[in-house]
């Protein structure tokens, strides 16, 4: 279970998050919706250690995640994708996949110089795993292209694939479907269903309400840095406050 408890974060006068609590269960997909600027991405940043909250804490399966240290959060099993995909753009698609996996022995200078055989063996297995994942996300034919050369939708798939290579306990996805063509969205949906079936935790920030309704087990609605509603997708659709907040009328 990934729990964020009473998270508050402000930039001077501007309150990005105030007292937000969410709980994401294993084997479930938690949707996070709300208008632009409601604090969704900020909340993902806090969960992934990219921003240090003024108050509140994050726990994963009962262990507290130290705030503001992204590499430590990742080592604890929290992985995040970004609205504008972060990729090593002058590296190939395959190389990006390879760094998605946890650090192999070949990232240690000691192993490079004195354990070359272990490094080689591990690399071979890693290449096989990365190619398998590329086949699964449908980018295998572009393994040797620079990541920069992919279309926007393919870049989003690639960053999802990188995330899966790390086999994180919790996946935080920031608008994976925005600006992506329907065929690729369908591929993303299949992937996320499979991830859910493996019993992992998924938090999905998305504006595409169809995808949210289709995938999410529960939905949390954020507005102006506060949770204003939560429930099943059907319950949320029936909630007038939510609809008003989306349409921009005074609640």
């Amino acid at each position: 279970m990934l729990i964020a408890a009473d998270i508050a974060l402000s930039y001077g006068e501007l309150h990005a998050l105030r007292g937000v609590s969410i709980a994401a269960e294993p084997g479930r997909i938690l949707g996070l919706v709300g208008p632009n600027g409601s604090g969704k991405s900020t909340l993902l940043n806090v969960l992934a250690g990219l921003q240090r909250p003024d108050n509140g804490n994050v726990t994963l399966d009962g262990r507290t995640i130290p705030p503001g240290l992204p590499h430590v959060a990742a080592q604890h099993g929290i992985g995040r994708t970004f609205q504008v995909p972060r990729l090593a753009r002058r590296l190939t698609v395959l190389q990006n996949m390879l760094v998605g996996a946890p650090p192999p022995p070949g990232e240690s200078l000691w192993h490079l110089l004195f354990r070359p055989r272990q490094v080689r063996r591990h690399e071979r297995a890693l290449h096989a795993a990365a190619m398998a994942m590329l086949h699964r996300i449908g980018l295998a034919h572009q393994a040797d292209d620079y990541a920069d050369a992919l279309s926007g939708g393919q870049q989003k798939l690639l960053s999802m694939g990188m995330l899966l290579m790390g086999a994180p306990r919790a996946l935080l996805l920031d608008e994976p479907a925005a600006g992506v063509n329907p065929a690729l969205i369908a591929r993303q949906i299949d992937l996320l269903r499979a991830v859910r079936a493996e019993g992992r935790i998924v938090v999905l920030v998305e504006h595409n309400m169809e995808m949210v309704a289709d995938l999410c087990d529960r939905v949390v609605v954020l507005d102006a840095g506060e949770v204003i509603a939560s429930g099943t997708p059907a319950e949320i659709r029936a909630d007038h406050r939510v609809m008003r907040s989306y349409l921009g009328e005074p609640a």
């Binding site: 992204p70 590499h71 990742a74 972060r86 090593a88």
Partner: peptide, 8 residues
């Protein structure tokens, strides 16, 4: 930042 979110 990408490197950090990948656990390095």
């Amino acid at each position: 930042t990408l490197g950090a979110t990948l656990g390095r």
